[in-house]
Simulated scan of single mutants.
Amino acid sequence: MDQELLFAYFTNHCGNDWQASVPVALSAWEIVEALWPLNEHFRPNYQAFRALPYHSAYEAQADEVLTRFAFEGIWGLVSVETWRVILERQQQAIVALPLHEVSGGAPRVYVPPMLPQSALTGAAILAVLHGMKLPLPVADRADFEPAPEPKGR
């Protein structure tokens, strides 16, 4: 996580007042909910990248793409190798964060209380996926299917 980048994101969405606020912790489930919509962004191309091996050489490109998406809401041109890195990070975060919380781990993401709900995905991307060191071994994602939006939302 690049704290300076995350703070710039907070300023974009909350103005400078966020700096005087007491941050609130997001639960693991709130972070998972914020990262879940990325599944829809994987859908158009996932068949091209899900079976690719993970290559750490594309991690810096993944960080650039994630930053652009968080701040501008657009992906731009993304190589299949970079998509694969983003997929692995998202999937591992969805598994690891709840396990961390259930085992008594401290919250990992804090946001200003006035951060709009619509900005939570970008905050989660920058706080969790950007610069993420994979907590688990890389998985074979050849059978990956983007999950639909959870019912009841």
Rank of each mutant, 00 (worst) to 15 (best):
E40D: 15
T121H: 10
Y9C: 01
G73E: 11
T11S: 05
V80Y: 13
L115A: 01
R43K: 10
A34R: 13
A8D: 09
T82S: 07
F49E: 00
E88L: 04
L136D: 03
G131D: 06
E81I: 11
P113V: 15
V80S: 14
F10R: 00
F69T: 02
I74L: 07
K151A: 07
V85D: 07
R68W: 12
S79W: 00
G104W: 01
R43I: 05
H55T: 05
R108D: 00
L136V: 03
V109C: 09
Q47W: 13
R89S: 06
P148Q: 13
Q19Y: 15
R108I: 08
L120H: 09
S103Q: 12
I31C: 13
T11V: 01
L77D: 10
A106G: 03
Q47A: 09
S79F: 01
G15I: 04
E101K: 07
Q3V: 10
L38P: 14
Y110K: 04
T82K: 09
K151W: 10
S103M: 11
D143R: 14
S79V: 04
S21H: 05
P23F: 04
A20Y: 08
F144P: 15
Y46P: 03
F42T: 00
H130F: 07
A127F: 00
L87I: 00
L26M: 12
V85W: 06
S21K: 06
L52M: 09
P135Q: 05
V78F: 12
H100Q: 03
G76M: 14
A25W: 13
V24R: 09
K133H: 12
A62L: 11
Y9P: 00
Y46A: 10
H130A: 00
V78K: 06
Y58M: 13
V111F: 03
L66N: 05
E72Q: 03
V102D: 01
F42V: 04
E40H: 15
Y46K: 12
C14P: 03
L134F: 08
E30Q: 14
R50V: 03
E40G: 15
S103F: 12
L6K: 01
F69C: 03
V65K: 10
F49R: 05
E30R: 09
G152W: 04
L87V: 00
L97T: 02
T121G: 02
Y58H: 15
P98S: 06
V95H: 15
G15Q: 08
S79Q: 12
F71I: 11
A28D: 06
L120P: 00
R68V: 10
N12E: 08
T11E: 03
P150G: 13
P53R: 14
E30I: 04
V109T: 13
W29H: 14
R43H: 11
S103H: 15
P113I: 13
E149I: 15
E101L: 05
G104R: 01
A28E: 09
Q19P: 07
L52R: 04
W83G: 11
G15A: 07
E81P: 02
L99T: 08
V138Y: 04
N39F: 13
F10V: 02
F69P: 11
E40N: 15
A28W: 00
Y110E: 09
V111T: 10
L120M: 14
L77V: 11
R68G: 06
G131N: 07
E4Q: 12
Q3D: 10
A147I: 06
F10Y: 15
L38C: 15
P137Y: 09
